[in-house]
Design a protein around this nucleic acid. Structure first.
Length: 126
DNA sequence: CTTGTGATTGTTCCC
DNA sequence: GGGAACAATCACAAG
């Protein structure tokens, strides 16, 4: 059932999809889930194996079944990527909800969540 | 021309 | 804790 839900419990999100280009400039886009990261690559491969199939909907289905077929180890790189994107997005959303957080007054330093250490050489794609 | 939909799963958000 | 909307993508439909 794709009855995802007609009415959401929350209230703020009542913003219905007005126009695809009418999104708040301050509101950052959500980070692609591991599935999407996997699908980005999966799509390309799928197109080579199925040049006739172009509909993303079909690829989505194929990818969905394949995705479940993957093991945690294979999803690991995708999850790791999504995890990083999540951290980035969390900061953006924080600024979106609290653009001036901490800039009020005498706020010294309480948040040490600066995880800027990108020492993970694994990226290595440099 | 323009816009939405359909389909996949995951993630994220706010109350 | 929960529930609800949205993230990419791309062909196709309808007005």
């Amino acid at each position: 059932m794709k009855a995802k839900a007609g009415s959401r419990a929350g209230g703020s999100r009542l913003a219905v999809k007005k126009s695809k280009a009418d999104k708040d400039p301050n509101k950052p886009k959500r980070p692609p889930s591991a599935f999407f990261v996997f699908m980005d690559t999966f799509r390309k491969e799928y197109r080579e194996k199925h040049p006739d199939v172009k509909l993303a909907s079909v690829i989505g289905k194929a990818g969905g079944e394949k995705w479940k077929s993957l093991s945690d180890a294979e999803k690991a790189p995708y999850n790791a990527k999504a995890e990083k994107l999540k951290a980035e997005y969390t900061k953006k959303i924080n600024a979106y909800n609290n653009p001036q957080a901490g800039e009020a007054s005498g706020d010294s330093d309480k948040s040490k969540s600066e995880v800027n250490d990108e020492d993970d050489g694994s990226e290595g794609d440099a």
